[in-house]
């Protein structure tokens, strides 16, 4: 009970501050919409290439954009925490009896809500303006899965940020991890088009399974194996992220 109240307090404070400066939320949404407009059309002719997985160009492309939106938005959340730490906000919260996990989860929850809003807007734009076809239940489930994925990355990002405590060491870590992880997940083009060795590497990447899961949702229904695997991988990442993040918040010198 106490934990829920604390989490809610941290969440509403973080949300209030985000809403006061919504420029980041809007910028975060601009990127996938630019991809839709400028990169999406290039995909349409490729759909007929041999080896392209089932589904329309948009059914393949939009899930990738959703994952990218969630992962990018969340992975950079740590920068905000470094600023908070420098201002003394983190220490002032750590001296209160509030649960250490709540200090993390309240912030993660804010990021999840932001991703839900961005993801919903992206889905609506894709359906209305680009002719994405998918069952409404799948569209909602897709946003839900990437929001949880975003939660995992935001928790990891907060943990790493509080551990490193400096933008100069945090930025290369984030960039160095994100780029290969995103490239190797078939976000822009499905990995089915890749040579064998690249597919093997991508199979190890958890994000591949999340993207494949959302694609499967759009094409069939919610009961295929890919959907279950994608969801399970997302929940696994979330668990790892939250455990790591709360461990750093609990640690003495944070």
């Amino acid at each position: 009970m106490r934990f829920m109240t604390d989490t809610w307090l941290v969440f509403s404070r973080a949300m209030r501050l985000s809403l006061r400066n919504p420029v980041w939320v809007i910028l975060g949404l601009m990127q996938p919409i630019l991809y839709l407009t400028l990169f999406g059309p290039l995909l349409e002719p490729v759909v007929n290439a041999p080896g392209f997985p089932p589904g329309t160009a948009w059914q393949v492309f939009v899930p990738g954009l959703l994952v990218q939106l969630a992962v990018f938005g969340a992975a950079f959340a740590g920068f905000g925490l470094i600023a908070e730490w420098r201002a003394g906000v983190v220490e002032r919260m750590r001296v209160t009896p509030a649960g250490r996990g709540a200090l993390l989860l309240g912030r993660v929850l804010r990021d999840v809500v932001v991703i839900v809003v961005q993801g919903a807007m992206l889905s609506v734009v894709a359906v209305v303006f680009f002719g994405l076809e998918a069952p409404i239940g799948s569209l909602i489930a897709g946003v839900a899965v990437v929001a949880l994925l975003g939660g995992a990355f935001s928790a990891l990002s907060y943990g790493a940020a509080l551990k490193l405590k400096s933008e100069d060491s945090f930025a290369p870590v984030i960039n160095g991890l994100l780029l290969p992880v995103l490239l190797l997940s078939g976000i822009l083009l499905p990995m089915a088009l890749a040579p064998g060795w690249l597919q093997t590497v991508a199979d190890i990447n958890p994000l591949t399974h999340v993207v494949d899961g959302v694609r499967a949702m759009y094409i069939d229904d919610l009961s295929s194996n890919e959907v279950w695997i994608g969801t399970a991988v997302t929940l696994g990442l979330l668990l790892v992220g939250v455990l790591y993040g709360s461990w750093v918040f609990r640690k003495e010198s944070a």
Binding site: R13, R16, L17, A87, R92, M93, V95, T96, P97
Partner: peptide, 28 residues
């Protein structure tokens, strides 16, 4: 206990009143 750190405790973007109320609420 209460603790006033040497180097500050508030978010530059937040309003003063909000910060103090939020802080008190973390003590229940």
């Amino acid at each position: 206990i209460g603790y006033v750190a040497q180097s500050g405790s508030t978010d530059p973007e937040a309003r003063a009143g909000e910060e103090i109320v939020d802080h008190a609420r973390m003590y229940g």
